[in-house]
């Protein structure tokens, strides 16, 4: 920038002088103007004085104190994520496949939501039909199971036992005592030790 006649150095020109990039005509002015030269020299002294301020460091162990409060990401998790990303974006084909699958998933989700909202009556009919079908299937299964039971060879023996009340009571008492005996044995086997166990070093 050329110097208008009669003007002194502005702070910008002093900055340029400090950084050694002052224009020639300003430099000529500086050589002749005692006020500007003194001002520039004072600024240099200040700037040099600031730059010469002593370097100061935090107390020893600063790094450890910072690191104690920093959460470092798990390298294994990062590597797995990066590997997946690399695999997905390795080739155009894999990228296209990933994009297609994402689109398909999002599209089908959006489609099913939209269809459900617009076909609520159909959905209700399907629900009713499934309920009646389910009931029929359950009834048929029960019937099949019962007829299968009747055809078993031991069914006749049990049936005759039911015809005689005395034999039935005897059988029931026998089965109950076997069941109770089993329970008592199991309880004894699973009981916790009640005695204190001494621990080493305590």
């Amino acid at each position: 920038m050329t110097r208008p006649p009669g003007t002194h150095l502005s702070p910008e020109e002093i900055d340029s002088w400090l950084s050694g990039t002052l224009a020639q005509d300003w430099q000529q002015h500086l050589d002749q103007c005692q006020a500007c030269l003194e001002r520039a020299r004072t600024e240099r002294e200040i700037v040099d004085g600031i730059a010469a301020l002593p370097l100061i460091s935090p107390a020893a162990g600063f790094s450890d104190r910072v690191m104690a409060a920093v959460a470092i990401p798990d390298p294994f998790a990062i590597r797995s994520l990066q590997a997946t990303q690399r695999r997905l974006f390795a080739t155009r084909k894999s990228m296209a496949l990933a994009a297609s699958l994402t689109l398909l998933l999002l599209g089908s989700m959006a489609g099913s939501i939209a269809w459900s909202l617009t076909h609520q009556e159909t959905l209700a009919n399907i629900g009713t039909w499934l309920q009646s079908q389910g009931g029929q299937v359950a009834w048929l299964s029960l019937r099949g199971l019962a007829s299968n039971l009747i055809e078993q060879p031991w069914y006749g023996g049990i049936r005759s036992l039911l015809d005689n009340p005395m034999q039935l009571a005897l059988g029931s008492a026998l089965a109950s005592s076997v069941y109770l005996g089993g329970l008592l044995i199991l309880r004894r086997l699973l009981a916790l030790p009640t005695q204190q166990v001494a621990h080493a070093g305590m």
Partner: peptide, 22 residues
């Protein structure tokens, strides 16, 4: 550091602890 290397975190601290503290 982003890849989980602790020494990289310490290096960043070493580089800037003095100027930031000053």
């Amino acid at each position: 550091a982003r890849s989980g290397k602790e020494t990289a975190y310490r290096e960043l601290i070493r580089r800037y602890e003095r100027p930031v503290f000053a």
